[in-house]
Computed example of a mutant assay.
Amino acid sequence: MAKKRKRRSAGRKKHERRRNTLLGSGTFALVLLAALWSQIWPYLLSIAVFGGVGGMVWWLRQTDQLVRSHDQRWRAEDAIRIGHRSLTEVDAMSWQEFERYVAALCRRDGCTDVEVSGRSGDLGADVIATLPDGRRLVIQCKHYAPHRYVPSGDMQKFVGTAWLHHKADVAVFAATCPFSKAALTLAVHHGVLAVHRDLLGQWNTGTPLQAMLPLNGTGQGDRAHRRRWKDTYRS
C-alpha cells in the first residue's frame, strides 16, 4: 500500500510540474506578446489577411470545380436523353416544350446563357444563347405539323427583328417541317440558318449547330421528293 501511495504521489508531482511548466511558458509568451505587440501586430495582421485570402481562393476554386463537374455531368446526361428522342416524339410536344427542347440542344452543343422566352410577343426570339465562340445566338422556333411548310411571311418577320432588334450574330429559324421555297430563299439571302425537318433530325442525333451553318439552304430535296414526303405524313 505504501509503495502504491508513493507511486501515486510521485505521479501527481510529475503532473503538477508539467502543468506549472506549461502555465509558466504560456504566461511568459503572453507577457512577451504584450511587450512586443506594437512591433509584431502588423506581421500578425498580414498573416491573418493572407491566410483569409488564401482560404477564400481555395474555397472559390473548389466551388468552381464542383459546379463545372455538375454542369458537365448534366450536359452529358442531357445529351443522352436528347439523342434518344425521335422526331415523332418531337412532333408530340407542345410549342413550349419544343422551345425548351431547342434550348437543350443548344446547351448540349456548349452554348451558355441559354434563355427561353416561352411567351408570345417576343419578336421572334424564342431562344437566346451565347455560342462557345462568344457570338450571340437568336433562334425562332415553329412547332408545325410535319406536312406543313414555313411560309415566307414567317421568315420575313424574323429577318426583320433578328439582326436589328435582337442584335444577333447568328440567327436560326428552327421548325418541325420544311420551309417553302420562298422562305428558304429568303433565309439564305439574309444569312438566317433555316433548320428544316431534315436538319432538325441531324441536330437531334448529335450534329452540332455550328456544323450545320454551311448546310443552309440544302437538304429538303426536289419538289417531287417533298411531295412524296408531304403525302406520307398526311396519310
Rank of each mutant, 00 (worst) to 15 (best):
M155R: 06
L184P: 01
F179D: 08
A183F: 05
G160V: 13
F179R: 07
V188K: 02
D133S: 05
S152W: 12
H189V: 12
C141L: 06
A194M: 09
V192K: 00
T161G: 03
Q140T: 10
K157S: 12
V138Y: 04
K181D: 11
G160L: 07
Q140E: 11
Y144E: 09
Q156H: 15
V192A: 02
V150P: 03
K181G: 09
H190M: 07
L184N: 10
A175Q: 04
P151V: 12
L184F: 06
P146T: 10
W163Y: 12
V138S: 03
G153C: 14
L164Y: 15
A183K: 02
D154V: 07
G191Q: 03
L186R: 12
D169S: 14
D169W: 09
R136W: 08
A187H: 03
G191W: 10
Y144F: 15
V138R: 00
H166I: 11
G191H: 03
S180E: 10
Q156T: 15
Q140N: 08
A171Q: 01
Y149N: 14
V188M: 01
A168N: 09
L184S: 11
R136Y: 05
F173E: 05
V195I: 14
C177M: 09
K167R: 14
R136P: 06
A194L: 01
Q156L: 10
L164E: 14
K181H: 12
F158C: 07
V159N: 10
H190P: 05
L137T: 00
F173C: 02
W163D: 03
K157T: 13
T161A: 09
F158H: 11
G160W: 04
Y149P: 09
I139W: 02
T176H: 13
L137I: 04
F179A: 04
S152Q: 14
W163L: 05
G153E: 15
A174W: 05
R148I: 10
P151Q: 13
A168K: 00
R135A: 13
S180P: 07
Q156A: 14
F158M: 11
H166Y: 10
V188D: 03
A175C: 15
Q156G: 13
A171M: 02
K157Y: 03
P178D: 15
C177T: 14
C141Q: 12
A145E: 14
A175F: 10
L193W: 00
W163E: 06
P151W: 05
V170R: 00
I139A: 01
G191N: 04
L137H: 08
A162R: 06
L137A: 12
G191T: 01
A145K: 13
A182K: 09
F179C: 03
T185S: 11
Y144P: 09
V192Q: 00
T185I: 04
A194E: 07
A175T: 07
V170D: 06
V195N: 01
F179E: 06
Q140L: 01
R135G: 04
R148P: 05
F158K: 07
A175H: 10
C141A: 11
T176R: 02
